[in-house]
């Protein structure tokens, strides 16, 4: 578990994004047990209260769930997982578009380049190195 924290963005949001990425990539599988808040804080070197807050938000968003006193797990809800994936793709695409538009690249050219580069880099597709 490695995450480079940006010191200008709320840490809890960065933690949630990290989880979303892992879920979208399939590194965190549906129903998989996740670290406790304490363990997470320790691994990421973040404030335990912040880890707690991230978990609380994720619970509210349905990304994770907790049954009784058992450790929290990644959601099994396909809809939510799909949503997360779409959200991340959309985010990445928007960032890409903004970048490309700012240097006036026509859509056609951009798409061709994306295709070419994407195929040159096949091992990236799985997302989990």
């Amino acid at each position: 578990m490695n995450i480079k924290l940006n010191s200008r963005e709320p840490v809890y949001i960065q933690v949630i994004r990290y989880f979303k990425e892992q879920i979208a990539k399939g590194v965190f599988e549906p129903g998989q047990e996740i670290s406790s808040r304490r363990e997470l804080a320790n691994k990421l070197k973040i404030n335990p209260n912040t880890a707690q807050r991230a978990y609380k938000e994720m619970e509210e968003q349905g990304l994770i769930f907790t049954e009784g006193n058992l450790p929290s797990r990644i959601t099994k809800n396909e809809m939510i997982i799909k949503q997360v994936r779409e959200e991340l793709i959309l985010e990445a695409v928007s960032t890409f578009i903004v970048a490309v538009q700012s240097i006036n690249v026509p859509l056609e050219e951009a798409i061709n380049l994306v295709k070419k580069k994407y195929e040159e880099n096949p091992n990236e597709q799985e997302g989990n190195r």
């Binding site: 010191s7 304490r38 804080a41 320790n42 070197k45 973040i46 404030n47 335990p48 912040t50």
Partner: peptide, 28 residues
């Protein structure tokens, strides 16, 4: 590491420093 471990769990901490970068993400 101690700060994020169970050693500090449920405790209130006041810490002084002149060098914040070590603990930027650790403090409330």
């Amino acid at each position: 590491d101690v700060f994020t471990s169970h050693l500090v769990e449920n405790r209130s901490v006041i810490i002084t420093t002149h060098e914040i970068s070590d603990i930027e993400h650790l403090i409330d």
